[in-house]
């Protein structure tokens, strides 16, 4: 994100990622996020399937979601390993995914593709107060990575990354980390 305007209470930390929330609840599965009929090797088809079976979000793929930060509850991305279900977030320009917890394969897929994913157990208590479109900021504080929901709220601690995921995130994805990219 290029937007670096400070949020209303002066943060003691520098936001690294700022964007409007795209909000989901608990146990949102990959079939809702990206139904299998949109599985394809063609990006246009994959892109058009985003959220087509997610209740209340069925038409969101038709709007501009570039720059959004996904905010979700427990067990985000449970279900299929189809990586199109993670790639579609990148195709729509989502800049980060934050959840109380992630389903294991979905988390690996998102991180492997170079989209930052943040696990934030402390988000559970506040998720109901986050409106779709509210400003979300993620950045580094002296105490580690933190998340701020909307203007003026207290920052919430993000779970520290294992050094492996730290290295993958820094490289921008697993292929880059392993230097498997185009030679």
């Amino acid at each position: 994100m290029t937007e670096q305007e400070p949020i209303s209470t002066a943060p003691v930390w520098l936001p690294r990622i700022v964007g409007p929330a795209l909000r989901f609840g608990d146990d949102v599965n990959t079939d809702e996020l990206h139904p299998s009929r949109f599985y394809s090797l063609d990006d246009t088809t994959v892109r058009s399937g985003f959220l087509r079976a997610a209740e209340g979000h069925e038409r969101r793929a038709d709007s501009n979601l570039t720059g959004r930060v996904v905010i979700a509850g427990r067990n985000f991305g449970i279900g299929s390993s189809r990586e199109t279900g993670a790639r579609v977030f990148l195709l729509h320009g989502i800049v980060a995914v934050v959840a109380v917890s992630f389903a294991r394969i979905f988390y690996r897929n998102v991180m492997n593709l170079g989209l930052p994913a943040f696990t934030c157990p402390g988000l559970a208590a506040d998720l109901d107060h986050v409106a779709d479109g509210a400003t979300i900021a993620i950045g580094e504080s002296p105490f580690g990575t933190v998340l701020q929901l909307g203007d003026g709220r207290d920052a919430i601690a993000v779970s520290p990354l294992d050094p492996y995921w730290e290295a993958v995130a820094t490289a921008g994805g697993l292929e880059a980390f392993l230097r498997l990219g185009p030679s």
Binding site: E83, R108, G173, E175, L180
Partner: peptide, 24 residues
């Protein structure tokens, strides 16, 4: 594939991964 876990029924360790993990 996520349902790779099925094979654990014989006493194996079996887990699913996405395409980038499998690529590597």
């Amino acid at each position: 594939d996520s349902h790779t876990t099925t094979a654990g029924a014989v006493g194996a360790f079996a887990a699913g991964f996405g395409s980038t993990d499998i690529l590597c």
